[in-house]
Computed example of a mutant assay.
Amino acid sequence: MKRLKEFIVTMALLVLATALAYWFYHTTESMTNMAIVYMMATVLISRYTSGYFWGIISCFIGVLGVNFFFTYPFWQIDFTRDGYPATFIGMLVISFITSATTTSMKEQKRLAEERDEMNKKLYESQKKLEVETEKEKMRANLLRAVSHDLRTPLTSMIGSSDLYLEAKDTLKEEEKEGLIQHIREDATWLLHMVENLLSVTRIREGNTKVNKSPEPLEEVVSEGVIRLKKRYPGAEIRTTIPEDFLMVPMDATLVEQVIINLLENALLHSGSTRPIEFTVTKEKDTVLFQVRDHGIGIAEDKLPDLFDGISSERGRGSDSSKGMGIGLSICKSIITAHGGAIEARNHSDGAEFIFTLPLEGEAK
Rank of each mutant, 00 (worst) to 15 (best):
K135R: 10
K135Y: 02
E136H: 04
K137H: 08
M138G: 04
M138F: 11
M138R: 11
R139Y: 15
R144P: 01
R144D: 01
R144C: 06
R144Y: 00
A145S: 04
S147A: 06
H148Q: 13
H148R: 12
D149A: 01
L150F: 07
L150D: 04
L150K: 03
R151H: 10
R151C: 03
P153V: 06
L154G: 05
T155Q: 11
T155F: 13
S156W: 02
S156P: 04
M157S: 07
I158H: 11
G159Q: 13
G159L: 14
S160M: 02
S161E: 10
D162V: 14
L163K: 06
Y164P: 00
Y164G: 05
Y164V: 12
Y164E: 15
L165Y: 13
E166R: 08
A167Y: 12
A167C: 12
D169H: 14
D169G: 01
D169I: 10
K172V: 05
E173N: 07
E173C: 09
E174A: 11
E175G: 11
E177L: 12
G178I: 10
G178F: 10
L179V: 08
I180P: 04
Q181N: 12
H182E: 15
I183Q: 14
I183D: 10
R184S: 09
D186K: 08
A187R: 00
T188W: 05
W189E: 02
L190A: 05
L190F: 15
E195S: 07
E195D: 14
N196Y: 01
N196W: 08
N196M: 11
S199E: 14
S199K: 00
V200K: 08
V200N: 01
T201A: 09
T201H: 04
R202A: 09
I203V: 07
I203H: 00
G206F: 03
G206H: 03
N207C: 15
N207I: 08
K209I: 01
N211W: 08
K212T: 13
S213I: 11
P214W: 02
P216M: 10
V221F: 06
V221H: 07
S222D: 03
E223G: 01
E223N: 13
E223Y: 05
I226D: 15
I226V: 15
R227D: 06
R227P: 00
R227E: 08
K229L: 05
Y232K: 06
G234N: 12
G234S: 10
